[in-house]
Amino acid sequence: MSIATTRARGTSGGAGGGLPGAFAAEWTKLWTVRTPYVCLLAGLIVTAVFAFYYGSIARINDKPLQPVGNASVSSVVLTQFVLVVLAMTTVTSEYATSSVRTSLLWVPVRSRIQLAKALLGALVGFVAGAGWAALGMAVAWGPFRGHADFDLSKAVYQTLAMGVYCALVCVLTVGVSFALRSAAGTVAAVFFVVSALPSMLVGLGGPVLLAVNQYLPQTVGGYFMLGDGEAPFPDAVSLLILVGWAVGAHVAGLLVLRRRDA
């Protein structure tokens, strides 16, 4: 039986497990390999080290008083790529081993399998991001030594915002992974858009390039997570821009998947 035939039957016949079933299958596949455990552990270590370093530098350089959550937010420039690798492998590993054919046979509705992977990435990304935010605050509080303050409402906001940003980075990565189907290509593309391009634009300078940089994921995500009111637009607008990037990547991946599934 061909994949196309199975897809037609899946579309016109019974719904099977539907989206919950597809999500449950992706959840099981994710936690039966080592990659997510290694990635999450690496994120914990990087967050702790970076937060301690951030707090120490702020104290040594006698920086002005700031929210303790800024240490956690600053660590995202590194930890986000741990989640990129985690989210990417849910897609590219199946293409590398051709097991994607089995996944597409069991979940013939193309949008459903991609949405299941995106939702899984978003859930893991949100929990990891929020957990790392809390860890970073706890670790950084000591080395800050009076150069940070703890406001509960601000801490909660930054914790949730960091979780949301990490979730959207995972969704973006899943979309790019479906579009490119290559681990190396996905990492290169996401790294360029998220990290390298902002650095290039800031380095080159000029009003136009700096204006473009304000709408890139990492830059606008920083505005959103800090929530300090110094962004060029409100936090809600920053969130909408991030969602736009994630949805755009998701749509691009779906178009490729529908045109050339396996």
Rank of each mutant, 00 (worst) to 15 (best):
Ser56Gln: 05
Gly227Trp: 08
Gly229Asn: 04
Thr92Phe: 02
Gln158Val: 05
Pro20Ser: 12
Leu160Asp: 06
Arg110Lys: 13
Ala252Ile: 11
Asp149Glu: 15
Leu120Tyr: 11
Asp228Glu: 08
Val174Asp: 01
Cys170Met: 04
Ser2Arg: 13
Gly163Arg: 02
Thr89Arg: 14
Ser99His: 12
Leu160Pro: 01
Leu19Trp: 14
Ala128Ile: 00
Ser238Tyr: 01
Gly14Val: 08
Asp261Lys: 08
Val212Pro: 04
Leu242Ser: 06
Ala22Gln: 05
Thr186Ile: 10
Thr186Lys: 01
Ser98Asn: 11
Gly205Gln: 01
Tyr215Phe: 14
Val76Arg: 03
Leu123Asn: 06
Gly125Asn: 09
Ser75Met: 02
Thr159Leu: 14
Tyr157Pro: 07
Phe192Asn: 10
Val174Thr: 07
Arg101Cys: 00
Asn61Ser: 13
Ala51Ser: 15
Pro36Lys: 05
Ala71Ser: 09
Leu201Gly: 02
Arg59Tyr: 05
Pro108Met: 03
Met225Gln: 06
Asp62Ala: 14
Met162Asn: 08
His147Trp: 11
Ala246Val: 07
Ala118Val: 08
Val169Ile: 07
Val33Ser: 13
Asp149Thr: 14
Ile3Tyr: 11
Gly244Gln: 09
Gly43Pro: 03
Thr186Leu: 09
Ala161Glu: 00
Gly248Phe: 01
Asp151Thr: 01
Val107Ala: 15
Phe150Gly: 14
Leu204Met: 13
Leu242Arg: 10
Phe191Ile: 12
Ala130Met: 03
Tyr215Thr: 03
Val187Ala: 15
Val68Ala: 15
